[in-house]
Computed example of a mutant assay.
Amino acid sequence: MTAPQSPVLEFPAMLHGLTGAVLRKVRAKGQGWAREYLKTGAFTQPRQMLQVPPGEILEMISGAEFDVVPRPRWRVHLFADIFSSLNEGVPKEERQRLEEAFEVFCLSTPFGALYHAVSPPPPRSAERMARRLAALLRFWDVLQGPRYAYRVPDTHHTLDDLMDFIYRKTLEAWCPGGPVSVREHMALTVARMSHSSREDCMEAVLRVVPALVEVDAEFKHREVLSDPGFLRERLSALSPRDFEKISSAYTYTMTMQLAAWDRELGRH
């Protein structure tokens, strides 16, 4: 169930502070959520929430902000550590259900929707990514208030800038020449991605690859990796499970797949 939207943005208090304190609280909360799931089969929002005023800086990746003297701030990227403690004490056969239920819970909250859009954990299938981006769109208005520190040090992005930075190539792959507005382009992409066939995903992947090859100087077989015939052959040879992993045309996942093919080409 999606948490009711409020004009006031609140994030879990555990995400604000010095690095060590945030990590301790996040790991403890992960253990607490695991116990709650085993007892009730569900998750509830943390009791301690803090308001995020407009203009507040949210650190979305390690090293995006630098302090000579460390000071408390929002360290949203450290939410990743929740996953290292979430499975503690949970039977192995229950872990997949727990992880799926936890993602559903996260996507019902602004902080969880933001985290899963900025740092989406595997799997990154078209179906899963459409769900994550749809959640972000539901909270778009309230998430426009803060500013976001990401890969460009000491640069504070708007939400639009941040999503453009992360998803521009993916959005163009799904909806070439789409709306100028990132929000509208993302909404159109979600609509297409949600009802996509394998062939739709194949076409999106084929469209995103040239943009990835162009900007990554590490690839040694650039012409081959950009060849549609080679790509179709390799994509068709992937198992359904492996194809699903890249089916969203998410740039990081696709870059990793291209790197694997590049290494294979180097061995022949």
Rank of each mutant, 00 (worst) to 15 (best):
Y150I: 10
L136I: 08
G112K: 09
Q144N: 10
A130V: 01
P121Y: 15
Q144I: 02
S119A: 13
S125E: 02
H116R: 13
L137M: 04
A130S: 04
G145C: 01
A135C: 14
E127N: 06
R147V: 07
F139V: 14
S119P: 02
L137C: 13
R124I: 02
V142Y: 04
L137G: 08
A130H: 00
A113P: 00
P123S: 03
A126F: 02
G145H: 12
R138K: 03
A117H: 03
R131Q: 15
P122W: 00
R132E: 06
R124A: 06
A126C: 12
E127K: 11
R138N: 08
L136Y: 07
M129A: 05
L137D: 08
P110S: 09
R138S: 02
L137R: 12
R132H: 03
P110T: 06
P120S: 12
E127P: 04
P146H: 15
Y148I: 11
R147H: 09
L137A: 09
L133M: 10
V142L: 05
R128I: 08
M129T: 08
A126P: 00
Y150P: 12
G145M: 01
Y115R: 02
P120E: 15
R138Y: 09
Y115A: 15
P146T: 12
V118G: 07
A130L: 00
Y115G: 04
P122K: 01
R138A: 07
S125R: 01
G112Y: 09
A117Q: 06
Q144T: 14
G112F: 10
R132A: 05
L133H: 15
L136K: 10
A134N: 06
G145R: 09
P122Q: 07
V118L: 03
P121C: 15
